[in-house]
Design a protein around this nucleic acid. Structure first.
Lengths: 203, 203
DNA sequence: GAACATTGTGCAGAGCGTGCAATAATCGAT
DNA sequence: ATCGATTATTGCACGCTCTGCACAATGTTC
């Protein structure tokens, strides 16, 4: 097993999944989403059609694939900070999310295309929202852990929802903007959404 | 044309859609969601399989079917109230949503089963979120109209997202609770979520 | 390197979802 | 009431989706 703690199998699996995702997005750009078949994606990614389904349930999920959980170290630090008032937890959470976004920012072009696909293909929108919601559930569980509450408690869930609403909104606007030289981070966009959100409820 | 302004065709269409939805949910309860086929649903609803697809793109969508827009009168009144500060618009919006929820509350049993299905079938969750998001988009457009902003502007979208997060969270908890005699409205649950949300950002 | 666990692949088959064209029902007007 | 226009229902055909199963190939553990 390698020094990173990640075995060969694990790495391959991650790479294959990424490969299939990239293939799906590439082909959707080239031919239009609904002209693309699983067979085409599989061939482009160098796997069998059957293997495709070992990684994704359908092509929508392959196209929108992205991170589904917080990095575990960051989450651990967040939890370790211990209980606090909801407002403070929300503040910490948005900071955590922004840091993670700054450290491993998505490709603007990919993000743009995914939002565009979601806009014209209901199935893609559904897949994207489902993925986002999976992330939200995980975040809510982390928040719950820090606050000493149950994972399905309303408070952690509302905190996670609010924070991720800001992230989603910021990312969407970022993906629609024209790239500017030297300024290609989604972070300011999300910060802006967070600020707006505060104006909303605390006027 | 009838006095309601709704023609025979329109009414039939609405009824058929409702019929198919009910059939899908009923069969899912009886046999488990993934044992149910389009053919079974169609037969149960008294239409041809081909007709099913004139109403829904797949069985997930049929199962989670629900309202997709604000009632037009309520929305009109909301818009007519004219521009205001974001916080006030949000307050008005939550009132509007609560009134609508009080006037035509969903069946608790249906809501419970839909959330349960969504919990164990990723495809159902995706369909539910997509439907919710369609609603959200429409609400955002209404809010935008009132505020004299574009429908894709961040402010109306954040307002709609926050309000509907509260609705979703409240409905989910309501659907999980045991029915209590004489107290079977989702309204207090949503009100509670709204209140929590305010505590969050304005502590 | 032997035993074990996981992953990739082919095959078969039920079910999904759509385009098309025919038929029937409703609608809006005279 | 009648007639043409619009819209809904259905059957048919066909390609694609997705899953279960069995077995080979490839890591992993001891």
């Amino acid at each position: 097993m390698s020094p990173t703690g990640e075995g060969l199998r694990e790495r391959r699996r991650r790479e294959t999944r990424q490969e299939i995702h990239a293939a799906a997005l590439r082909l959707a750009r080239r031919h239009g989403f609904d002209k693309v078949t699983i067979e085409m994606i599989s061939t482009e990614a160098g796997v069998s059609p059957r293997t495709f389904f070992n990684y994704f349930p359908n092509k929508e999920a392959a196209a929108v694939f992205g991170p589904r959980e917080l990095s575990s170290e960051a989450a651990a630090a967040f939890v370790a900070a211990g209980p606090a008032r909801p407002g403070e937890v929300l503040r910490d959470l948005t900071r955590l999310l922004l840091r993670q976004l700054a450290e491993s920012p998505p490709e603007r072009r990919d993000m743009h295309d995914i939002f565009a696909l979601a806009h014209e293909h209901p199935g893609v929108l559904a897949a994207m929202l489902a993925q986002f919601d999976t992330f939200r559930t995980g975040v809510a569980a982390t928040v719950a852990e820090r606050m000493g509450r149950q994972p399905d408690d309303e408070v952690p869930n509302l905190i996670a929802s609010v924070a991720l609403t800001a992230v989603r909104t910021g990312l969407e606007r970022w993906s629609r903007d024209e790239p500017v030289d030297g300024e290609d981070s989604p972070v300011p966009y999300v910060e802006r959404s967070v600020a707006l959100l505060h104006t909303l409820l605390a006027p």
